[in-house]
Design a protein around this nucleic acid. Structure first.
Lengths: 352, 352
DNA sequence: CTGAAAGCGCTTACAG
DNA sequence: CTGAAAGCGCTTACAG
């Protein structure tokens, strides 16, 4: 710590450069109104002393409040998945609000693109300093982040990525590898060469996240020279009855399905179907630590859940924006989350 | 944030109490030299205003440096496990050194109790403000923490616990449940009712951590009505040759061992034995994300590693002491770490 | 037992 | 383009 030890602050820099500390401050923050000559001199001294600004003092003195927008899906009756990121945001805010950071949540409806567009434009009107978003709707997200770029707003993606965009960071899973892990777990105790079913339950047909997961899943079989037949269905209604109808039909066509992989958190509907139709000895793996899934994990219908720490994703996203906006330090462009394996036996200790 | 908004600080409290801010400060920090009457009055106003001290300002103004001692095993040639906690300490220190926190590491030798005792008394001489330790030697740790109590030093255990002590917190695994998870993974694809081997490799005979793990391991079999014979060996030399000798003898006595569970990070020596002796189709599970284990995970000799985020444990331990000493807030007495499951497929994303 | 004043390292108007 | 001064919310000697 500075304190007693020899610490060089703005005062010392000012003394050595023969200027006032106000001028030093201007240079440190790249403000206008300093001659090239003194600017150069000061920067040299800063480098020489390896000056580290005292963030405490900086934030204490500054009146400047930084506002971060958070654009995520509203928690629906269908799933409480998005509760976790919201908690992550709140945890981050609690930690850094002393530094003058505030967050404002904006919620959209996952079954209505228009709400995403509306909330996004609200954010732009509001005049925030940074944005964290889940790019659930690809085209709409692309358009929104283009606006952010024009306004020089840094933005961070969580949960899924749009790689071609100039985001400050992506914080979320490596979907391909996540599917790969799913395949490992599913096949780990496979006894036969029977069929395997991949189930995709989503209203968003074009959502390519699930495709990446599936690609990873299939790659595992290829890499390990396993030639199981992989059956695949898309279910575009997310309610139980639709899922049950599709599942019944699949089981009718394919008697010898031994294992099922569901590419998202809706695995509980498939679990429910298996339980209701008294199908036993079918391995089932899916995604996300949500309470709907937990009961089926506990009664052994779901074997494993894969999870990517949604709360932590949001926490880190807020911290990344804080790093960038307050500290001015650089941020890792891609932060892959761990691919966590949750079972009946370890879930009580899981930290989302 | 305070800033523009209506924020009540020491100044406002002082104004309302008709005293100076110095007196308010004395009350806030429970310093002596304030009459009961004014003390009471000030405390009432503090409560009424729900006063939250500004930590930034507090630490900036204070000259008081807080020193935390870290007592952990030295990294040996045998295992780099303790590198991770050290990194966790450094990460925490980097984050809070602006607040005037410093850490000092003290290393002991896992194969020499005396070094633990020496380092522990060095800490007491040094006059630190808090201690984080791995209580690797139970009796010695007990004696040391009793001294800490006398000196009113808060201390936090990581990695393993001594439950009867008055620690500020324990941050580490639930060992029983961890063994339970190990059994789940080991039996998940068990084909037969063949024998299962539990291997204990440690110089510390009386270390009861391994006993807790083993107890959890065995409970899984009981809870699931599995009657596999569980063979158990203790190996008290940790070098490869000793392990190989014991393993050879066990395999001689028990031909039909199908799966092996090693209760700590030395699973790599067993893996090495299996590989060298060309034994295939034996499931192997052990502990900890260390580089010695990683190669055997990658070439499929080790099926799963269980891990408890050693870096995070240390990070949190330092933060817990910081919370207690600087913020004055309370700390959770037991913080169980997640029981992470590491495979060949997900280890690249693991965050220790 | 209590208060006035200086200071922590920085930022922010304001004046020139 | 530059500087003197006030101030952020708290702590710390020092004086009484």
């Amino acid at each position: 710590m500075e304190k007693d030890s020899i610490y060089f602050g703005v005062k010392e820099i000012a003394r050595r450069a023969n200027v006032s500390i106000a001028t030093v401050d201007r240079v440190i923050h790249n403000r206008t109104g300093v001659s090239e000559k003194t600017k150069k001199k000061i920067n040299e001294i800063i480098k020489e002393l390896d000056y580290q600004p005292n963030i405490l003092a900086s934030r204490l003195a500054s009146k400047n409040i930084i506002i971060l927008a958070v654009l995520i899906p509203r928690v629906s009756e269908e799933t409480d998945f998005w509760e976790a990121p919201l908690r992550g945001v709140q945890r981050a805010e609690l930690e850094i609000k002393q530094y003058g950071i505030q967050t404002i949540p904006f919620f959209f409806d996952l079954s209505d693109k228009e709400t995403f567009v509306q909330q996004a434009s609200l954010i732009l009107e509001k005049g925030v300093h940074g944005v964290m978003l889940s790019p659930s709707f690809i085209e709409e997200s692309r358009r929104f982040t283009e606006e952010c770029q024009k306004m020089k707003l840094p933005y961070v993606f969580i949960d899924s990525n749009i790689p071609e965009q100039r985001s400050l960071s992506y914080i979320g899973p490596h979907l391909f590898k996540s599917g790969y892990v799913g395949a490992k777990l599913l096949t780990y105790r496979l006894k036969s060469r029977n069929k395997i079913l991949v189930v995709n339950i989503s209203k968003e047909i074009e959502n390519y996240n699930y495709l990446q997961i599936e690609e990873g899943f299939r790659s595992y079989f290829k890499d390990n020279q396993m030639d199981n037949t992989i059956v695949r269905i898309d279910i575009k209604e997310t309610d139980y009855l639709s899922v049950a109808r599709h599942m019944t039909s699949v089981f009718h066509d394919h008697q010898d399905i031994e294992a099922i992989f569901v590419t998202n958190s809706r695995v509980f509907t498939v679990a429910s179907f298996l339980q209701n139709s008294k199908k036993k000895n079918i391995s089932l793996i899916g995604y996300d630590f949500i309470k709907e899934n937990l009961q089926y994990l506990n009664n052994n219908v779901i074997d494993f859940l894969i999870c990517h720490k949604p709360e932590e994703q949001a926490y880190r996203a807020v911290m990344a924006l804080y790093q960038k906006l307050v500290i001015g330090s650089s941020v890792e462009k891609i932060q892959y989350m761990p691919i966590d394996i949750i079972t009946k036996e370890n879930h009580e200790f899981y930290q989302k």
